[in-house]
Structures are given as C-alpha cells and as structure tokens.
Design a protein around this nucleic acid. Structure first.
Lengths: 124, 124
DNA sequence: ACAAGAAGGCACAATTTTGTTACTAGCCAT
DNA sequence: ATGGCTAGTAACAAAATTGTGCCTTCTTGT
C-alpha cells in the first residue's frame, strides 16, 4: 500500500496542503531497512549482491521487496548491466539524494538518544 | 518491543557504535501517529482529549498506546492535574523537542515529494 | 559436465502495528 | 438521578511488515 493517492491520508493539523506530509514521509522512509539501504547507496551505487553482503540479517526476498518499493517511490534507480553474468546496479535518484541529509540527522539523533539511555542506566 | 538493548539491532555499516542509530530512530519515531502527535505537542502542551479532537481518525486506544510508547522512550511527559475533573496534560521533554527540527525537514521533504508526484501525473 | 555466483521468484508463516466496539470510574451541572 | 465530560481498559480482529526455506535461470570458470 505504498501508492500515493492525495486524498488517502487523513488531514493533519500541521499542514493540510494535500495530506500529512510527515506521515507520508514516515510511510515511505520508515521501516526496518530503508534507512540502511539508503545510507549504503549514498556512498556509492551498488550491485544487488554487494548490498546483500553489506546488510547482515537481510534476506534476499526482503531486500528485493525493499528495493522495489524504493524504486516505485522514485528513491532509487535500477539498471541491468550488459556484462556477463548480467548484474543489477542500484543507485540513488535526485529524490533519494535529497533525503540523505535527513538521514544524517536521524543518525545523529539516534546516537544522542543512545548515549542518553546509557546515562540513565548508569544512574540506576 | 520498543525496549532498547544495545546488542539487539544488527550491525550497520554506517556507524557501528552500538547499533544502527538510523534504524533505532525510525523504530522510535516511525509509525502512523508519532509524527503528528509530536508536531502538535511542539506547539503547546495538550490535554488528552484535546489531542484526540485534533487528530481525526485516531481512536482512544491507539492514542493512549502511542502516548505511552512515547513516554517510555522519553519523548513526552505525562502530568495529572489536580483540578476537577482531573485531566492529563502531555508535553514534550527536551529529547522530544530535539526531534522537532527533524520533523520539520521530514515535512518539507514530504511536500517536495508530493509536488514531484503531481508533476509526474500531469505528464501522463 | 558440473559447481557456483548473479538476481531473483514462490508458498507459506510469524510478528508487529493498527483498528473496532464496547465498557469503566470519577466528577459535575441540571 | 441522569447525562456528559474526563481519561482511560478489555476483548477481539484485521492489516501491514518482516521472515523462512527452497526453487529457478542465466552464465562463467574448471
């Protein structure tokens, strides 16, 4: 259900231009793997199996699903190379690139959160 | 499952300080309602039922669950007032506040995404 | 001829998240 | 004393997300 229909998302008091953009973004970028995939691709384009190796714990099926989703949402591009054996290269689109700075702040925030949690643990 | 255990999250090639902070953040902030709730509270503290009215489509149960989760993760604080009838005020903690700028960029990005989608629709 | 790497597909299953409907308990005003 | 407001609970159900295990097709190296 990642299709975007402009009247599918409930109104949001913050900005009611079309739908709630925050919820939309969370829906597109949230989830367990999208962030990691995006951050890998932000460093360089990558072949399918290379990504698989770089993301421990992900299965082929899930990786494929995520990549498809991200392509459908215009975040990445898929390109079959013509060399043998045929390989598939994935890389960020401009839209995908435009999310990278946000990704970095999410990462920062996460790290801050972690250290805060650790401080709490010390005290208890 | 929102508890944080430092070795529960798979390694992330980006930053392997403790776990993948991106995934962690997505896990804490993702989902359908957290963003909206946070953005409401970023404007002012709010009572339970006021929030309920401001977020069309949310049910009591879900709102309660979300608020509890956010409190558990240290994003918001819950305070029972002593007036009659007793009411419950929710407000952001510093940690919660610290996410607001990110929320705004998520919102911006969402809006950009929406306009891009619309342009595509025009062309087809 | 045969294994092995590339990029998946398929059937099914478990988990997590979100939703529905109804109910409670304290208090207050009419 | 009845209804309505406060902030929830409880039992149950549906939907979405993520995962498992095994199969496939093409190709290249030995």
């Amino acid at each position: 259900m990642s299709d975007f229909k402009s009247d599918q998302y409930g109104p949001c008091t913050l900005t009611v231009k079309h739908a709630c953009p925050i919820e939309l973004t969370m829906h597109i970028m949230g989830g367990k793997w999208k962030g990691i995939i995006l951050s890998l691709l932000s460093k360089s384009p990558m072949y399918y199996n290379a990504m698989r190796r770089e993301i421990p714990g992900i299965t082929q099926r899930i990786l494929t699903l995520q990549l498809r989703d991200m392509k459908k949402n215009g975040l990445i591009e898929r390109e079959e190379t013509s060399d043998n054996p045929k390989r598939v290269l994935y890389y960020l689109t401009d839209l995908g690139e435009s999310f990278v700075p946000i990704l970095k702040s999410l990462e920062k925030w996460g790290n801050a959160y972690i250290s805060q949690q650790e401080e709490k643990l010390k005290k208890s």
